[in-house]
Structure formats: C-alpha cells, structure tokens
Amino acid sequence: MNREFLYIVLTIFLGVASIVLSFISIHSKKLSLAVIAVGVVSLFASILFLLMSAPDVAMTEAAIGSGLTTLIFFYVLNKIKKSDA
C-alpha cells in the first residue's frame, strides 16, 4: 500500500512536470530549450511506463523517444543554423 502511494505521488509529480515542460517547449523562444524539454517529457514518460509494469516499453521510449528523437532534432537544428549562416 505504501509503495502504491509512493507510485501515485511519483506519477503526479511526473505528470505535473511533464505538463509544465510541454508548455515550456511550446512557448519557449529558444528551439534548443524546446527540444530538450520534449526530450525530458519523453524521459518522464518512460519512467511512467516502468511504474506501469511496462519495462520494455520504457526502454524503447527512453532510447528512441527520448534519445534518438532529441538527437535528430539537434542534428536538424545544427544543419539549419549552418546553412543559415
């Protein structure tokens, strides 16, 4: 029961943080900040998956959703910055 409660608190915390981060990502003027925020949202989501007995999903989300996606966003941003200069 205690663990259950802990999970709930953690979930709420992650949820609120995700929502805040997603707002930040949408409203931030800096693109890199926005990309990082989305990456973090994705990361929180993978923690959430872990809590919900989905370890393999969590791993995939962390690797692809959080890692790879952020990477290619930055790759594109860099390219754009370069060609802009």
């Binding site: 990502s25 926005a34 949202v41």
Partner: peptide
C-alpha cells in the same frame, strides 16, 4: 515538437 508531445 508538438507532434512529439502528442505522441508521448
């Protein structure tokens, strides 16, 4: 990015 959020 917003699509990514929706995906998540």
């Amino acid at each position: 990015l917003a699509f990514s959020i929706a995906d998540a």
